[in-house]
């Protein structure tokens, strides 16, 4: 049997005000223009907020969760009459999924690249050549591992 966990919502990272979810009155205004809801039958921002609120979120923060299909378009944020900010709830859920090792590989790899190189991708030889051809100034890339230092402390 699925058990509700009223304390679950307290775990959500509140930096971006994900803590507003208890204002949700389940009106579905966030669903109409959600590009993910339009394309995935199991993606529904109203339901995601409800699950987070009730703490029935094992699936949402588990492996292959549908939350990674959110386009981060902020339509739900603008349309919600209650300022519940479904997109921030989803981001906070993604954080929990990541912490428990359930984030998709692409996400983990991209974060690693930023921590290791300071950028999402490195400067390829062909791109270096293209920059030279275009005559844009040489690029100064961040020192490797720099961010790990500041994040590590």
């Amino acid at each position: 049997m699925v058990r509700a966990n009223p304390d679950f919502a307290k775990q959500l990272n509140r930096i971006e005000k994900a803590g507003n979810l208890n204002y949700c009155y389940q009106c579905s205004a966030c669903v109409q223009e959600c590009p993910a809801a339009l394309r995935f039958s199991d993606f529904n921002p109203r339901e995601i907020v409800l699950c987070a609120l009730l703490g029935v979120a094992d699936e949402l923060i588990g492996e292959n969760s549908v939350i990674w299909q959110c386009a981060t378009c902020y339509n739900c944020y603008e349309r919600c009459p209650q300022k519940a900010r479904p997109v921030e709830v989803i981001t906070a859920l993604k954080n929990l999924a990541f912490e428990t090792g359930n984030a998709p590989e692409q996400i983990t790899a991209l974060r690693e690249s930023v921590l290791n190189h300071g950028t999402i991708t490195t400067l390829s030889d062909s791109m270096k050549k293209r920059r030279d051809e275009l005559g844009v100034p040489a690029i100064s890339l961040p020192e490797a591992g720099l961010l790990k230092k500041i994040l590590g402390g």
Binding site: N13, T91, N95, Q106, I107, L110, R111, V114, I120
Partner: peptide, 12 residues
């Protein structure tokens, strides 16, 4: 950093 994947990995 990029606001959907890196932010999705960890807000802080």
């Amino acid at each position: 950093p990029e606001p959907w994947n890196v932010k999705g990995a960890g807000l802080t």
